[in-house]
Design a protein around this nucleic acid. Structure first.
Lengths: 155, 155
DNA sequence: TCTTGAGCTAAAGTTAACTTGAGCAATTAC
DNA sequence: GTAATTGCTCAAGTTAACTTTAGCTCAAGA
């Protein structure tokens, strides 16, 4: 039994979440929220959609894309808004992601340290470029072929 | 005295750097390289442009935008390609930037840790949202106004 | 009832960093 | 000398996450 009074129009959702109305409409087209429609075709949101949108903004703040976020929400049974225990699962996954990004940046910084005095700035030699896994994509992508048929001097 | 033989056409630059020809042309429109033109209007690059483009790719790899990179290069006298000692200066600035990004991510992760068991997921209460300086932009931007004129229940 | 204010749709605009395509011109290879 | 390759310009397309605009409709208050 969902009384009309339980539902909120898009403007209130916008005010409660701090988002623009257009952003909320956009989230709907992206499948992140699923308002029902009034007889006249206006969107009607549940109160829990405020929490749902808060989740989206927080996850974005953590650096995740809307696609990532939709993915996480689709793992929940029947597309429900994350509960406290859902959040516990999800936030652990987010934490792991953050850890990986921090590690990656730290490795980059360390490589940069090793290069401060070097100044080789050569794509063939510099360890800053192609650190680990940029090349080897089956043969496509940037080549780093160095022979242009001329005496390879200074570069 | 710049002999024609010292100059390279765009295709060779592309092969030597691993970039697409279109990307190099794009860099020109963005003011990142400044090839001269042959009598027939074809681009002619200096050998040092290979190094210049290597610098661009490396800086991108470190996470800087083309705008940032152009900014760094414009600090150099008469728009020269970074030398070894230029690189020393620039790489220290880059290092500082990376440090700041790492710190930021670590703070975010730590805040997330404090929230794993919490699950409040409320934009008004959650320390994950609006961590430090997201609000207070002179009054514009997201409001986080919480009063919608209804008894504020569950949220 | 009449006037605002709020909502609706569909299409186009925005930024970054390029790519793709069309239609030609210049160079290089044989 | 001719074909294949490379290069040129200009315009439009791409992705993400939205915003803006235009042209209407609906709802709420005096």
């Amino acid at each position: 039994m969902r009384r009309a009074g339980d539902m909120l129009p898009i403007g209130k959702i916008a005010r409660r979440t701090g988002l623009a109305v257009s952003a909320i409409r956009y989230y709907e087209t992206e499948g992140l929220v699923h308002p029902i429609r009034s007889a006249a075709g206006q969107r009607q949101f549940r109160r829990s959609d405020i929490r749902r949108i808060s989740f989206i903004k927080i996850a974005q703040e953590l650096g995740f894309s809307l696609t990532d976020i939709r993915g996480e929400m689709e793992k929940l049974p029947e597309g429900r808004t994350p509960t406290t225990s859902d959040w516990e699962q999800i936030s652990r996954r987010f934490r792991d992601e953050l850890d990986q990004r921090i590690d990656q940046l730290q490795r980059t910084r360390d490589r940069l340290d090793g290069c401060i005095g070097c100044g080789c700035l050569s794509l063939k030699a510099c360890s800053l470029y192609n650190p680990d896994d940029t090349v080897r994509e089956k043969g496509a992508g940037p080549r780093l072929i160095l022979d242009d048929g001329q005496k390879s001097e200074e570069v």
